[in-house]
Amino acid sequence: MVSLLGPRQSGKTSLARAFAAKREHVHYFDLEDPRDWNLLSTNLTLLETLQGLVILDEVQRLPMLFPFLRVLADREKPSAQFLLLGSASGALAQNASESLAGRVFLIPVEGFSLNEIDDSQKLWMRGGFPKSFLAEDTQLSNVWRDAFIKTFLEKDLLAFGEKVSLQNVWRFWHMVSHYHGNLLNTSEIGQSMGVDHKTVKNYLDILCDTFMITALKPWFSNVKKRMVKSPKIYIRDSGILHSLLGVDDYNQLIKHPKLGASWEGFALHQILHVFQPRDSYFWRTATGSEIDLLFEHKGKLCGFEFKLNGDPSLTKSMMTALADIPLDSLTIVTPNSKTLALSEKATLVSLADVCARGM
């Protein structure tokens, strides 16, 4: 049993249909279609009669499916293979862990990445959603992203079963775009919106679960320094970030005060796409020393710093991190730098090279 997990419009259904085209017996159920939802919600046993490939699209819409899928997965001689498509990571991950633990393989589908696209500037500006990236011109790409945001707020959140003020979620999403690449202050945002910090945390969870926001957790080590405890926040797709900021083209982007933060978020998510770490963190002390991204890879603790200007030098912050935390490597990622060793553990590398070769 395999699950494709990612945001709406990221290409999950297209990928599933392309795979299905090579199979002889295929059964497709779209759980956003009331007919398919009603059919399965009233007759789950239909699934045990099917043979071949069974595709269940937007599977998080019908939580009662998961215990039954566990029964089917445990059959001695299963007659069908199941491909699950989901757009809400929290709902799907919870149900999968409770009912399908050890029975389902999760594959993230997050739109286009640098491993697939040669034009990094266009990918950064428009983001990875296929219809945004492939639009005939910049204006049509902007129109698609604006429509995506509107549909997500007015339709998708309701479809996911979220009972919240859609206007407040929009305000929060827009405010987060201005925190992009910085620590999230839930109390400050709550005061601005007239809600408490628990409500802000709920909005954050919703947008993280639906792949709109990434919230990096702070990494703690046994050092005698005060560490920050707030999450570091990013709009997940760079094109959506630019739409929320009102940035319509590359000329506007390079003059925008969030230019550096935009590229940091773009590069960070490309790295996460390549390495798929189980958990990802940032490191920052109360005095301001910081590493943008930390995760374990093949048993080693890897750190990443993102520098738009490509300055080939170790900063005081980097040297503090190398001294204070047990990093096995520190990669300083820039747009176009040639690979250069800066110390025994620190290396300057272009984003394209990191994505192409991994670690």
Rank of each mutant, 00 (worst) to 15 (best):
M1S: 09
M1D: 03
S3M: 14
G6M: 11
P7A: 15
R8E: 11
G11V: 06
G11Q: 07
T13P: 00
T13I: 06
R17M: 14
R17L: 15
F19P: 00
A21N: 14
K22S: 14
H25C: 04
Y28R: 02
Y28S: 03
L31V: 08
E32S: 10
W37M: 11
W37V: 05
T45S: 14
L46H: 09
G52T: 04
G52W: 02
E58N: 11
E58I: 06
Q60R: 07
Q60M: 08
L65Y: 05
L65P: 02
F68T: 07
L69G: 05
A73T: 04
A73G: 05
S79F: 01
S79C: 07
L83K: 01
L85E: 05
L85N: 04
S89Q: 14
Q94C: 02
S99H: 15
S99T: 13
V104E: 09
F105P: 00
S113R: 10
D119A: 13
L123W: 02
M125T: 08
R126V: 02
G127N: 04
G127A: 06
G128V: 06
K131H: 14
E136I: 06
Q139L: 11
L140Q: 13
L140P: 00
F148G: 09
K150R: 15
T151Q: 13
K155M: 09
D156K: 05
F160W: 11
F160H: 13
K163F: 05
K163A: 14
S165L: 08
N168D: 13
W170N: 15
R171I: 00
F172L: 07
H180Q: 08
H180R: 05
G181N: 05
N182Y: 09
L183E: 10
E188C: 04
E188Y: 10
I189H: 00
S192G: 11
M193T: 05
G194N: 09
V195H: 07
H197G: 03
K198L: 15
K198T: 15
K201G: 11
K201R: 15
N202L: 07
L204I: 02
C208N: 09
D209H: 12
T210Y: 08
M212Y: 03
I213P: 01
I213T: 09
A215P: 02
L216R: 04
W219G: 13
F220E: 15
N222T: 12
K225L: 11
K225R: 14
R226S: 12
V228Y: 03
P231Q: 09
I233W: 02
I235T: 09
H242T: 00
L244C: 11
L245S: 01
V247S: 02
V247I: 14
D248I: 00
N251Y: 07
H256S: 06
K258N: 11
G260R: 01
A261L: 12
A261P: 04
A261W: 01
W263V: 01
G265P: 03
G265Q: 01
F266W: 04
H269K: 12
L272H: 10
H273V: 03
V274W: 05
F275C: 11
F282S: 03
W283T: 07
T285E: 09
S289W: 04
I291Y: 01
I291F: 02
K300D: 12
K300F: 06
C302Y: 08
K307S: 03
D311N: 08
S317M: 00
S317Y: 00
S317C: 00
M319T: 10
L322A: 10
A323Y: 09
P326H: 10
L327Y: 07
L330A: 08
K338P: 00
L342M: 03
L342S: 01
E344N: 08
K345C: 01
L351M: 10
M359D: 13
